[in-house]
């Protein structure tokens, strides 16, 4: 009798911890990077803090960035699988970097403002976004 109850209790503990882990799943860091000039997880942290500084999350949903739940622009999950950027630019690393640095030049009148990113910053961010392709999600 007691042993049965004990097993159920054990299962309950596992269940609870499972719930916690699932809730954490969404904040798991995503180390892999697609850009050639960026390596290692420090870069991923650097990129995520850039995303936070420039406020990308205000308009876009970006998995793994706290508070990045914007609904203004498209969600940025699995970005590498996109065919186009801004509706008409083919999704290549070069185009993405250009787009990040000056969206108003590539697509005048788009709601995405020019935020004066340096090319290094744009590359870091692009690398971060492509990194999601490798994620098993």
């Amino acid at each position: 009798m007691f042993r049965g109850a004990l097993i159920i209790a054990g299962l309950a503990v596992i269940l609870h911890i499972g719930v916690i882990l699932i809730s954490l799943e969404r904040v798991k860091a995503k180390p892999p990077l697609a850009m050639p000039d960026t390596t290692g997880r420090v870069v991923s942290q650097e990129a995520s803090s850039l995303l936070k500084h420039y406020g990308c999350g205000g308009c876009h949903y970006i998995p793994g960035i706290a508070g990045a739940n914007g609904k203004v622009g498209p969600g940025l999950e699995q970005f590498a699988n996109r065919a186009y950027i801004a509706g008409h630019l083919p999704n290549t690393p070069e185009n993405l970097v250009h787009w990040l640095m000056n969206p108003q030049r590539l697509e005048p009148g788009t709601a995405m403002p020019t935020m004066n990113l340096t090319s290094t910053e744009a590359k870091l961010i692009a690398g971060f976004l492509y990194g999601y392709d490798n994620d098993a999600r």
């Binding site: 007691f2 109850a5 209790a9 503990v13 609870h16 719930v19």
Partner: peptide
């Protein structure tokens, strides 16, 4: 959640 598990064990113990 650990605490809640304790409460759950109490309920189980009661039912048992």
């Amino acid at each position: 959640f650990i605490f809640a598990t304790g409460i759950l064990v109490f309920v189980l113990n009661f039912l048992a």
